[in-house]
Simulated scan of single mutants.
Amino acid sequence: MPAAAIPAPPWRAPKKAPAARQPLSAEAVLSTALRLVDRDGLDALSMRRVAQELGTGAASLYAYFANKDELLEQLLDRVVGEIPLPRADAPDWKAEVKRACFASRNVFRSHRDLVRVARANIPTGLNSLRYAEALLALLRGAGIPDRICAWAMDQMSMVIIADAVEQSIHEELGRRTEAEPYLNQVRDYLAALPADEFPNLVALAPTMIEGSGDERFQFALDLMIDGLATYARPSGGAA
């Protein structure tokens, strides 16, 4: 009997079919990398994993990206491109800024923990530049001074990123379905503290866990943007 016709022993693990080789391009690499992050999270992403998905060797990816850091930068910029641009001609600039912040947060949250790449990083990709330009046009058009515009954009980004990162951590810990029992435990723990030493924590224990993630994010935006509005000049124009 030919060797090829001999069946494999039943205890031997079946061999995996080799990954089908796909046409290689920067776009194919980015699409594959994003699919990996969406499926397995940021820590699972590597040049080797992307190459395996594409049916090629990791060395071939370096023709398009100098290293993993460059791949991550461009991957983040690709995701930023999914965010609708703020409209400078919106009739209510405060509502438009809040809408843009929610849209940014929702896009980042739709891609697992990729938003971690944005921490301590100033995005300079084309999509990021276009978004920043549109947001600055909206703020300057509201008559907010230039320095306040620049700083406000930075601080709003920090709030969005922090919220998205926290959400991704909770999801990785499996608290998406266990949030209520966990929060109730926190409430009960605070309420049981010695009232003579921690009177305010005891009094506010129920309030500390109130509100959905959306409500708390809206509250943060209201605080920031209502404060920002105090710098706006009714006549418009930038200082």
Rank of each mutant, 00 (worst) to 15 (best):
V97L: 14
A58S: 13
E166R: 12
R147A: 14
R116G: 06
W151N: 14
D92H: 07
G174K: 08
V80L: 12
I160V: 15
V80M: 10
S110I: 07
E96M: 03
G57D: 14
R175D: 13
C101L: 09
M153S: 13
W93Y: 02
A58G: 11
Q155V: 11
L173P: 05
A162I: 05
T177Q: 15
D69Q: 11
E166N: 10
D89E: 15
R140D: 13
A59M: 11
M158C: 10
E166P: 01
L114I: 05
R78C: 04
F108W: 13
L61F: 02
V80A: 08
L61S: 04
L135S: 08
P84D: 00
A164I: 04
G125H: 03
G57N: 07
A164F: 01
K68V: 07
H111D: 05
E73Q: 13
L136N: 11
D163E: 13
G174A: 10
L85F: 02
A150W: 10
P123A: 11
V107L: 07
A120P: 00
L138I: 08
T124A: 13
E73A: 15
A132W: 02
R109F: 02
Q155H: 12
T124Q: 15
K94R: 14
P91I: 05
R175E: 13
R116T: 08
R175F: 15
W93E: 01
A152L: 06
H170I: 08
R147K: 11
E73M: 08
L76Q: 03
E172A: 14
K94Y: 02
V107N: 04
P123F: 07
E178D: 14
Q167C: 08
D77I: 02
Y62S: 10
A66F: 04
F65D: 02
I83T: 07
L76W: 06
P84K: 00
P145D: 14
V159K: 05
R105K: 10
G143P: 01
E178T: 15
F102M: 06
A120M: 13
Q74W: 05
D154Y: 12
E172W: 07
N127D: 08
A103P: 03
A118H: 03
D113H: 04
S168D: 02
N127A: 15
N106C: 06
R105L: 15
A90I: 09
V117N: 03
H170Q: 12
E172F: 07
L72S: 05
A118T: 12
L75T: 00
F108V: 08
R109T: 10
R175I: 09
W93T: 07
S60F: 07
P123E: 09
F108N: 10
I161F: 03
V97M: 11
R99H: 10
P91L: 06
D89V: 09
A59Q: 12
W93L: 04
K98C: 08
E171R: 12
E73W: 10
A137T: 09
R87A: 14
R147Y: 11
I161R: 03
F108P: 01
L75N: 01
A59C: 04
R78T: 09
G81V: 03
L85A: 11
R78Q: 13
M156K: 06
R130C: 06
R175P: 01
E70F: 04
Q155I: 11
E96S: 04
V107M: 09
R116K: 13
